[in-house]
Computed example of a mutant assay.
Amino acid sequence: MKNRIADLLGVQYPIVQAPMGWIARSQLASAVSNAGGLGIIETSSGRLDEVREEVKKMKTLTDKPWGINVAQAFVRDPDIVSFVADQGVRFVTTSAGDPNRYCEALKGRGLTVFHVVPSLSAALKAIEAGVDGLVVEGGEGGGFKNSRDVSTMVLLPLVASKTGVPIIAAGGITDGRSMAAAFALGAEAVQMGTRMVSAAESPVHQNWKDAIVAAKETDTVFLNRQGPGPALRALRTERTTRLELEPPPNIMGEMANILDLYFGGDLEAAIPLTGQVAGRIESVKPVAQILRETIDEFEAVMTELGARYGRHSDPLVPA
C-alpha cells in the first residue's frame, strides 16, 4: 500500500501501534514492525532507563522501521531529544503537551515528527509548530483524553478538511472496516491501541486481555471530565464505576498500583485504560494475524464500496 504515510514511515502497511505506557515495549512493538506495520516504543511510563534497555532489545528483534513516542507530560529529561535521535529511529510522535516544545529540535536531528491532537485547534497549533503530520485521536480511544472529547467520526474529517498534512487516525480502529472508514474520512494511516493491548504478543496479564474480549461496547467509562488532571477512558470495573460516580481529588493517585493491574492481573488495583472498541474485539490474536486480516478486509471493503457505489454502478441495486 502506497501513500504519503507509508512512504514517510517506510512500512508495508500504514498501521501504527499506539505508544501505551509500560505496554508499548520491544515485545509488542517488534511484532508490529515485523508484521509490516510500525511499532512504537513508549516513554509515558517515565522509566527512561528501562526504555533504553527496551530500545536495545528492539534493535535485536527487528530490522524493520519503528519509532518512539515522547509523552511530554511524563518525560522530564532535558536530553530527551538527544535520547530519541541517538536511537537511530527516523519517526517520532509527540503527545500530552505543547508541540512547540520539541518539534524544531527533533526535526533538526532529521526525524519525522507527528503530534497527537484531540481537537482542530490543537491540530492547527501543531501544524504551525512545523510537524510533518498528525495523529488525530477521537474520544472513544482508551487512555488519557481531552476532557471535551470529540468522536473520530466528527474530529477526523474536520481536521482533514482544514489541513493538508498526512493524518494517522486513532480511536475506534480495530479492523479493516474501521480502517476503510478512517481513510474515507481523510486519514492515510491508522493507529491501534486496545486491539494491540489484547494481542497475543502484548505483555499485559491474560486477565486484562480476557476482560477486553468479554467487554460490550458500553463497557468503558470516561473519568475525571471535570479535573483536576487528565480525563481518561477505561474499562468498566467496580473501581472505575465508583470513580465515575465519585471523582477522586487526584485521578493519577488511582494509578499507583498500575503494575499490579498490567502484569499481575488485578483489574481492581488501578485503572485499566481501554477504548470503546473493546466491544468489537472477540478474541486474542497474534499481531501478524491482526494486521493481515485488517489489510485483507480493508481491501475487500474498498473494492465492495467501489463496485456498489462507483460511477458506473447503480447505487440502488445491491451488488
Rank of each mutant, 00 (worst) to 15 (best):
R4N: 14
V11R: 00
Q12I: 04
Y13N: 00
A18D: 10
P19F: 10
M20N: 09
G21R: 04
G21P: 04
W22V: 00
A24D: 03
R25S: 03
S26Q: 05
Q27D: 12
L28F: 11
A29L: 12
S30H: 13
A31E: 06
V32A: 11
V32D: 08
V32F: 09
N34D: 14
A35R: 10
G36M: 01
L38T: 03
G46K: 03
L48M: 15
R52E: 15
K57F: 05
M58D: 12
M58I: 05
T62E: 06
P65T: 14
P65F: 13
W66L: 15
W66A: 13
G67L: 08
G67Y: 03
A71T: 10
Q72H: 01
V75D: 09
R76T: 11
P78T: 02
D79N: 13
D79K: 13
I80T: 02
V81F: 12
S82M: 01
F83N: 10
V84N: 12
A85F: 07
D86A: 15
D86C: 08
D86Q: 14
V89F: 13
S95H: 00
A96H: 01
A96F: 12
D98H: 13
R101K: 15
L106D: 09
K107C: 03
G108S: 06
R109T: 04
T112F: 04
V113Y: 06
F114Y: 09
F114H: 03
A123V: 05
I127T: 11
E128I: 12
G130D: 02
V131G: 02
V131N: 02
V131D: 04
D132V: 09
G133I: 03
L134F: 13
V136W: 07
V136P: 03
N146S: 12
S147A: 13
S147W: 04
S151N: 11
T152S: 15
M153G: 02
V154D: 04
L156I: 08
V159R: 05
A160T: 07
S161P: 05
P166Y: 14
A169R: 09
A170R: 05
G171T: 10
I173V: 15
G176H: 09
A181C: 10
F183E: 07
L185M: 15
A189D: 13
M192E: 06
M196Q: 05
V204Q: 09
H205N: 14
N207Y: 08
K209N: 14
E217H: 12
E217Q: 12
T220K: 05
G227W: 03
P230S: 05
L232R: 06
R233S: 04
T240L: 11
T241W: 06
L245Y: 00
E246N: 15
P247H: 08
P247Y: 08
P248D: 11
I251R: 07
M255G: 01
N257Q: 14
I258P: 02
I258E: 00
I258K: 01
L259S: 03
G265M: 09
G265R: 10
E268Y: 04
A270K: 01
A270Q: 04
P272G: 09
P272L: 08
T274V: 14
Q276T: 01
A278C: 14
K285C: 00
I290C: 00
I295D: 02
D296K: 01
D296S: 03
F298Q: 08
F298E: 11
F298P: 07
V301C: 03
T303I: 02
Y309N: 00
H312F: 15
H312W: 15
